[in-house]
Structure formats: structure tokens, C-alpha cells
Amino acid sequence: MRATIRVYWRLLVAGFRRQSAYLMAAFGGLVANTTFGLLKVAVLFATVRAAGGELEGYDVALMSTYIWVSQGLLGSVNLFGRIDIADRIKDGDVAVDFLRPLDVQAAAITTEVGRSLFNLIPRGIPSVLIGGLVVGMALPDHPTAYLLGAVSIVLGITVSAATVYLMVAAPGFWLVETRGLQILYMVVSGFLAGLFVPIWIFPTWLEVVAQATPFPSMLMYPVDIISGRVDVSGALLLLAVQLAWLAGVGAVGQALTRAGRRHLEVQGG
């Protein structure tokens, strides 16, 4: 058990360190996050004001927190649908991964989470700081929001990695080309995760649709918790929902990996 934990810890650290090599990319991401953030500020603030200063519990200050925290998480939460293991499944390298004394799914997700956690340093924290300094934002009234929020962010990152594994990488055992799935994931996940507009201002039917998917667990719920939009009991409920999605998505991903291993055809030789 201890040895297993150590292996995955090393994978996590390796992912983290690998990402640290791409500082220029992180800077580019920060520029993009900030630019999009300022555009979101313009249009979402105008919406809140047009609604009379308050919209589904959002005032301008809380909307600002939502915008900058979600922009900051964008480098870490996988809403693009790209994961290295998808390429390895496609070109057959995964056959080598199956020979290793490691679970293929868990190893892929752990490495991905490590990379994502690193991105919080050059992209996540600066986005929130820039937003806070340039635009201003609301802070939660109770300090537990930060603690629960941090847990929720890590959970959200993990749910996103596990979902990309399930929806984009694992089908690769059966399909040769998964690029279409990746694009589909990218299109749907951002919208339903609440990246452009909080899902709470969706029409009710669309809000229900969003909540029936794992996507809000990646971004919307962590933002709700750390911005103090929900109180402690609300936060604990959202954390439970995130955990349930992680368990569900992880279990189906594991089943697909096992079935895929029996089905795996390596093309070429």
C-alpha cells in the first residue's frame, strides 16, 4: 500500500515538474485568461446592471469573483479534452503501459493532475490577483470557504482529468480517431461547467441538464465554494456531489480500460 502511494506521489510530482518547463506557455495562458476575463467583466457586469444590480444572487462584486476565479482555474481544469494517454492509446504505445506494474487509468490521471496543480502557480493565482487589483471582487465571509474551496478545486481538477480519460481517451481502444470526441468534449464542457456564464443564471431546464453532467463539478462548484456564494453546509453538499461524480466517472473509466485492454489492437508492428 505504502509503495503504491509512493509511486503515484512520484507521478504527481513528475507531472508537476514537467509542466514547470513550459513557463512561456504559462505566460501566454495568463495573457489569454486576463483578456477573456476583462471581456467577461464588460458583458457580465452589464447584464447584472441591466437586471437591476442583482441577478440570481450575483451582484457585481460576486460576479467579479466568479469571473476571475474561473479564469484562474482555466489553466488547471481540463476543459480542452487533451490528455497524453489518448495519443498513446491511438498509436499503440499503451501496450507498453499495460506491462508496467501500475494502473493505466490511475497513472494517467495522476500525471495530469500533477501538471494541472503546477498551472495554479503561474496562471491561477496571478489571474485572481490581477482581477482583484484591477476590477475588485467579493471575498467570502467565513474563512472555512478557503479551506473547503481548496479541497474542491483539487477535486474539480481530478474530476476533469478523469472525465477526459473516460470520454476522450478510453473510447480510443475502439475508435481509431478520437479527435471528433475531443472537440465535442471541448465544446460542451466549457459551457456546462459554467465557464462563460454561471449555470445558475441558465433557464431552469438547461440548469438541470448541466447538473446532470460531471461538468459543473469541475469549475462551477469549486468557484461557488471559494467565492462564498454557498455557506458551509452548501459547500459540504457540493463536495459530496463532486466526490460522487469522481467515483462514478472513475469506475466507468476503469471498466472501459479493462474491456479495452482485451480489445486493444496495435496497428502496425
Binding site: 512561456m24 506557455a25 505566460f27 501566454g28 495562458g29 489569454a32 486576463t34 471581456l39 458583458v43
Partner: peptide, 23 residues
């Protein structure tokens, strides 16, 4: 490596272009 820097203006530009710019 920093391709995302220009995405801010190309894709950010698309996002901006579809907004009511009076805001």
C-alpha cells in the same frame, strides 16, 4: 511555446466581436 498569447486576441477577438460592444 507561447501560442496562447495570440489566442487571447484571435479567439478573444471572436468572442469580443459577437458582443454588444457598447458595454
Amino acid at each position: 511555446e507561447g501560442a496562447e498569447t495570440t489566442n487571447a486576441f484571435v479567439y478573444g477577438g471572436r468572442y469580443a466581436a459577437t458582443q454588444p460592444a457598447s458595454v
